[in-house]
């Protein structure tokens, strides 16, 4: 099922690359921006299934972008991509709730697999929530009366 992906990176060439890569290989739609300050507005306007963000950007860092996303929708997976591939940066990002951490330069398979897994994770999570709420609803067959 096609979904929508939001990509944030201060380098327009990276945006172009990721956009081409994703639209070439998948049926997902891509919205991208090189200004992380716009993220809030973009999230308000549209529904997204996965967010990809660079970690180090001059205007706002990736961890802040992630916080904005999580405030809006804790179930929206954020994949952090960065050119500074230190272990510490990865740990910190995952600790703060990143779904995955990818270092530049990357192989396209790494990006595609991460996106598919994030979609799957989001799907399972939503399904889980739906089942749970149905079970907890009054008169549901799962709950003894």
């Amino acid at each position: 099922m096609p979904g929508q992906i939001l990509i944030i990176d201060d380098q327009p060439d990276i945006l172009l690359l990721l956009e081409m890569l994703i639209t070439d290989k998948t049926s997902h739609r891509v919205v991208s921006t090189n200004d992380p300050v716009e993220v809030e507005d973009l999230l308000a306007k549209d529904d997204f299934n996965v967010v990809l963000t660079e970690l180090f950007m001059p205007a706002m860092d990736g961890l802040e972008v992630m916080q904005i996303v999580k405030r809006r929708d804790p179930d929206l997976p954020v994949i952090v991509i960065t050119a500074s591939g230190t272990l510490e940066a990865a740990e910190e990002a995952v600790h703060q709730g990143a779904y995955d951490f990818i270092t530049k330069p990357f192989r396209k398979e790494r990006i595609l697999v991460a996106i598919e897994k994030a979609f799957e994770w989001q799907r399972v999570l939503k399904e889980n929530r739906a089942l749970k709420s149905r079970m907890e609803a009054p008169g549901s067959p799962g709950k003894p009366s």
């Binding site: 060439d13 990276i14 690359l17 890569l21 180090f56 050119a83 500074s84 591939g85 330069p105 396209k108």
Partner: peptide
């Protein structure tokens, strides 16, 4: 190196990514 890595990895990602495509 730590400072330079970021500067090099970004263009490298672009070069390698487009080369792949």
């Amino acid at each position: 190196a730590a400072g330079v890595a970021h500067e090099i990895n970004n263009p490298l990602a672009i070069i390698l990514g487009f080369a792949d495509i």
